[in-house]
């Protein structure tokens, strides 16, 4: 056996045991019938998939894509100037990068709870606004789509900033001088030189944000309340309250298929994805 294979083996085995096997199990579950108390039973069935085309579920899927797309767009809008600022801040850049990564030191769950404490009717924001006499009734900040998008943007912004920073930092400053030399104003340089040259970073960041946002379950559960049901919540529900494992399995496979299709669409011919 080649030495290379020896070092590959642990990772390969881990991947097979934790990825391939469970995926195969999910695939098989999705083709079986629902057991009375959860679990799965024979006979084989395809109706778990046909049910996904029911407008009720199709809408959940569309809404999930929509919310993930908005969150990704907002991350890009907020992340690009931030990444540009960090890339051009000279020796300070390591400090700013550390601050971008700092939130990861705490669990995502706890940070999401933090947002609940800020946004709820008796939370910090409403308390201050009422105390200042600006409003009488608390603003409905929590348990809506806006709160979910806020939570997603907050949570996944670093995944947009880091790849953008990496490409912007590598961008040859002389190209911007050349653009200015040829008469381009700063905005025009940004549009005609900086943006096209960091298209790869934008794509990578968009994928890194969009895919987890599409499958989110925690954020929509905690910040969206019962009003915002996304694919992630649908899947979770099927495995718990609804006890419909085959349909949950089919939903999660569709989610993965959608993510996969988008990844392939984003991959340009002959280019590395990330």
């Amino acid at each position: 056996m080649k030495i290379r294979n020896v070092f590959l083996a642990p990772g390969a085995i881990l991947s097979i045991v934790t990825m391939v096997v469970p995926l195969a199990i999910v695939g098989i579950y999705s083709l079986l019938s629902r057991g009375a108390y959860g679990g799965v039973e024979l006979p084989w069935a395809l109706e778990n998939y046909t049910r996904l085309f029911d407008p009720l579920y199709a809408l959940i899927f569309l809404k999930s894509v929509w919310i993930a797309a908005i969150a990704t767009a907002l991350c890009l809008l907020l992340g690009f100037p931030l990444a540009l600022f960090i890339a051009r801040s000279g020796p300070r850049k390591n400090l700013w990068l550390a601050l971008v990564i700092l939130p990861f030191w705490t669990s995502f769950l706890i940070r999401t709870y933090g947002w609940m404490f800020l946004l709820r009717d008796t939370g910090l924001i409403n308390t201050i606004l009422i105390g200042a006499g600006l409003i009488r009734e608390p603003l409905p900040l929590l348990y809506n789509d806006g709160a979910v998008i806020l939570g997603l943007v907050y949570g996944y912004l670093p995944f947009m900033v880091l790849p953008l920073y990496a490409t912007l930092e590598r961008l040859d400053a002389r190209l911007l001088e050349a653009a200015a030399d040829l008469g381009a104003r700063p905005w025009e340089s940004l549009r005609r030189v900086t943006l096209p040259l960091c298209a790869g970073g934008i794509r990578a960041g968009a994928i890194l944000v969009f895919v987890p946002c599409l499958g989110t379950y925690l954020t929509s559960d905690l910040l969206g309340g019962s009003k915002t049901v996304l694919i992630g919540n649908l899947v979770q529900n099927q495995f718990t309250a609804s006890r419909d494992w085959p349909f949950g399995a089919a939903s999660s496979l569709l989610l993965m298929a959608v993510a996969m299709l988008l990844l392939m669409a984003a991959k340009r011919k002959g280019e590395e994805l990330l």
Binding site: D172, R174, L175, E177, A178, A179, A180, D181, L182, G183, A184, R185, V193, P196, L197
Partner: peptide, 20 residues
């Protein structure tokens, strides 16, 4: 004046051609 308002153009040492 900023570079984009000067009727002067530069050939850079590294050429600085736009790779895209």
């Amino acid at each position: 004046l900023p570079p984009y308002q000067r009727n002067v153009n530069t050939v850079f040492q590294s050429y600085a051609l736009f790779p895209h």
